[in-house]
Simulated scan of single mutants.
Amino acid sequence: MTTSQIHSTNQPTDTKNARAVVLFSGGLDSTTCLYWARANFADVTAISFRYGQRHSSELDAAGRIAKSLGVAHRVIDIDIAQLGGSALTDLSIDVPPADTAQDGVPITYVPARNTIFLSYALAAAEVTGATYIVIGVSSVDFSGYPDCRPDFIAAFETMANLATVAGRAGNRLSITAPLQHLSKAETLQLGLSLGVDYAATVSCYQADSEGRACGVCDSCTLRRQGFLGAGVPDPTRYQN
């Protein structure tokens, strides 16, 4: 799959001289987006967050990947964990196995996380002169989170252009979701075409200190199914 085959939200067309800010966790999706952004934009800044998540292994992976690519990388400290309400930030709430029957949005949803992350990315875009923010959300193979859907991304983009000096001056900001309509298998095919080393990524909700995945959470299950669907070996290191 080539970049021209992507069906995305606000797909950039002419970005030869454009700058982009990429929301970058160090997981499968955001790493694909970072490689994709490097192939499409003149200058890229990656932003990660230490927000009170269960482990730092994904952040460690993000740092290594950004360094290997020579991409400017900023880690921002915020404390969403103090609000609670998610198994990813509240250690008193167990991360459920993927096969656990659930009604509605899973307990791994972090309230307003993408809204908060995009707000910081918006500020970074103004500071760096970026006209694109790249986010690795998908509404195909995903956990049902409300802030991963096209209408949310479109609404935030509208707000962003009303909330910034650049936007009011006519320097329009676009929020691009290159994986929005891709399955996990299609995302992997895109990343492999761009040279992504998925062995370097960490996606697990409860990875250990060495970055090894639990193999049973929703994120692990979607990731494993993606490799199966893409017909390529899964390089993920598992705890068991």
Rank of each mutant, 00 (worst) to 15 (best):
G170L: 12
V232A: 02
G63Y: 11
V137W: 10
A66N: 06
L59M: 03
H73D: 06
D197E: 09
Q82F: 14
D60H: 09
D79F: 13
I153A: 13
G170I: 14
N17G: 02
T221F: 02
V216F: 09
I65M: 07
G211F: 06
N40P: 05
I78Q: 12
G27I: 10
Q5N: 13
I80N: 07
G84M: 11
L28A: 14
P178Y: 01
E157H: 09
A39M: 04
D60M: 03
M159D: 04
A125W: 04
G136T: 11
A121M: 11
G191R: 01
S203A: 10
A185K: 11
E58L: 01
L222V: 12
V105Y: 00
L194K: 12
E58D: 05
S119Y: 03
G195D: 07
P106I: 05
A125N: 09
G211M: 02
R74G: 02
Q206N: 14
A230C: 04
Y198K: 00
E58S: 13
Q102S: 08
T201W: 00
V105T: 15
K184P: 12
A160T: 09
D29W: 00
E157F: 06
A61W: 00
L192A: 04
F142C: 09
S4Q: 14
S8H: 01
V95Y: 02
D60F: 06
T31G: 00
S57H: 02
L34R: 07
S139E: 15
T15M: 12
F24N: 04
P235L: 01
D14E: 13
Y238E: 13
L34T: 01
A66Y: 02
L222T: 01
A39D: 13
R19P: 02
A163V: 01
G70T: 04
R50H: 12
T201E: 06
R223E: 09
L173A: 06
S4L: 12
N161R: 10
D94A: 15
G52L: 02
P106R: 01
A66I: 10
V134C: 13
T164R: 05
L69M: 12
S57V: 09
Q82N: 14
L194V: 03
C217Q: 04
L59T: 14
T9Q: 12
I6T: 14
V21H: 08
N161K: 05
S56G: 09
L122Q: 10
V127R: 14
N171R: 13
F227L: 04
S138F: 02
Q102R: 07
A207C: 01
V196D: 00
C204S: 10
Q206L: 11
S48E: 05
A72C: 13
A61K: 00
T131M: 13
M1H: 11
P150V: 01
E157D: 07
N171F: 08
S8T: 06
A42H: 15
H55F: 03
Q82D: 15
Q11P: 04
V105P: 04
I153D: 00
A42F: 08
S209G: 03
Q53S: 03
G191A: 10
P97H: 05
D197V: 01
S4W: 07
A42R: 08
D43E: 15
R172Y: 08
D77T: 12
Y132F: 14
R19E: 05
D79W: 08
F117N: 01
I116W: 06
T9E: 12
V134R: 07
A154H: 04
A160D: 02
